[in-house]
Design a protein around this nucleic acid. Structure first.
Length: 418
DNA sequence: TCTGGGGTCCTAGGACCC
DNA sequence: TCTGGGGTCCTAGGACCC
């Protein structure tokens, strides 16, 4: 075998991040909530044994969770992002090539004499150096590596490492995996496959792929090839810049006033524009979204796309257009729960087409944005921001159980008492 | 009172071109 | 009696992922 793909996936990533700086919680149940403290999105190993469900609204289980003595945290993305970067950096020496697939997963291209030993070495290293528990799955294709990883998580005797390097090994596993669990097969597809009498991964692997391509899509055809050990998907080493940058949030309570909605849009526009400038991007089309829910009126959402006069990454300009748009969408008397802004058709500054007859973003505006970003990078987010975004606004999301930003704020650095 | 947020890729169909 | 063929670009919507 020339090389294998390895998928390294952190176990209960958010909950594990919270535990790194709280060794006192080692054997305690830990839960992490989504934005606005809405749902449970991560449960550590101990909480799972208590049968606390994932993806349920927190308020429904709050009483039980407290009774069981769970430690609850609001999501702390600054912390998780930083721990993720540590994990990825630590993995690099163990791979010929590495793809950061998500905040808690990486695909590696690995060559080793003994793959089992290599996987164990990766797992032990991440626990020793970052205090992050992971599982490792290895196989000749990414799709099989995903399934190997799932097996490593679910089958205790594998000790967190699963290598599928022969058809005998992966076919044994495929026969035991429902189609829904395959990477790229969601609930819709798996239902339709069931009607064709395809219930598990082995049945899919042995199905007629050309016919299924016609009936479904090329994606499914690739999945079938990958299940048979024929790689179709390579590592994505240099992720392409984003084509869309979206920022939407629910409010901590229902908003009724336009000026508060405009504050929110200004604040989300700032966030989106920071991301835009980070990838040296420009945008010309702005999407604005507004959602309300009211007992009497019911559910309602509206959206609009607005064009800027020219390509831009200026927070002030984009925020202003966003605020005009939200004013158009606004209807007095409704109670709003969520709004958002998206930057569409994002392109790179390098390829900007200069138009002789139309205005462009000025040098002055570019320079100002750079200064703003530098200050915020150095002294912390929102050191400089638009006045229109409001100062510590009441509507901003609930985060009642927030842990310190141990690794990204000087003021939050943990203190060791001897 | 109360249910997250941010992405990508593919396809079908329409408009338009030569 | 009989009405071409092939291609590109764009958009909306569906499906999927973490």
């Amino acid at each position: 075998m020339n090389h294998l793909f390895a998928l390294v996936d952190c176990n209960t990533f958010y909950a594990s991040c919270e535990k790194i700086f709280r060794p006192d919680l080692d054997d305690q149940p830990v839960l992490v909530l989504s934005n606005n403290d809405g749902c449970i999105i991560s449960r550590d190993r101990v909480a799972k044994t208590l049968n606390i469900p994932e993806l349920v609204p927190f308020f429904q289980v709050k009483a039980r969770v407290e009774q069981l003595g769970c430690h609850v945290f609001s999501s702390n993305y600054e912390l998780y992002g930083d721990i993720s970067a540590r994990v990825m950096a630590a993995l690099a020496p163990y791979a010929a090539a590495l793809e950061v697939y998500s905040i808690d997963e990486a695909f590696l291209q690995v060559r080793a004499k003994d793959y089992q030993a290599h996987g164990t070495a990766i797992k032990d290293m991440l626990w020793r150096d970052v205090r992050m528990p992971v599982c490792v799955g290895m196989a000749p294709t990414k799709t099989l590596a995903k399934l190997a990883n799932r097996a490593a998580k679910k089958i205790p005797r594998l000790n967190g490492v699963c290598v599928l390097d022969t058809p005998q090994k992966w076919e044994w596993l495929l026969a035991r995996i429902p189609t829904k669990e395959i990477w790229g097969i969601g609930s819709r597809l798996s239902e339709r496959l069931k009607m064709l009498n395809i219930h598990n991964a082995l049945q899919l692997a042995r199905a007629e792929k050309k016919w299924l391509r016609k009936k479904f899509s090329v994606v499914l055809e690739r999945t079938i090839s990958e299940l048979n050990g024929h790689p179709c998907l390579d590592l994505d080493l240099e992720p392409a810049p984003r084509k869309e940058i979206v920022c939407t949030r629910s409010f901590s309570y229902k908003i009724t006033r336009l000026d508060e909605l405009q504050q929110a849009i200004a604040s989300y526009a700032s966030r989106a524009c920071e991301k835009l400038r980070m990838q040296q991007g420009l945008t010309q089309n702005i999407w604005v979204y507004l959602e309300s829910f009211d007992r009497q009126v019911g559910y309602f959402n509206r959206q609009v796309v607005k064009a800027l006069p020219h390509l831009s990454n200026d927070t002030r300009q984009i925020s202003q257009v966003g605020q005009q748009a939200i004013a158009e969408l606004y209807q007095p008397g409704l109670r709003y729960k969520k709004c958002g802004i998206g930057l569409l058709d994002v392109r790179t500054q390098t390829y900007e087409q200069v138009d002789l007859f139309n205005p462009q973003q000025t040098e002055r505006s570019r320079a100002l944005m750079t200064v703003m970003d530098n200050i915020n990078h150095r002294y912390g987010k929102q050191t400089v921001q638009l006045a229109g975004a409001g100062i510590e606004p009441k509507w901003s999301m609930r985060r009642e159980y927030m842990s310190p930003r141990y690794t990204t704020r000087w003021s939050d650095i943990p203190v060791v008492k001897c």
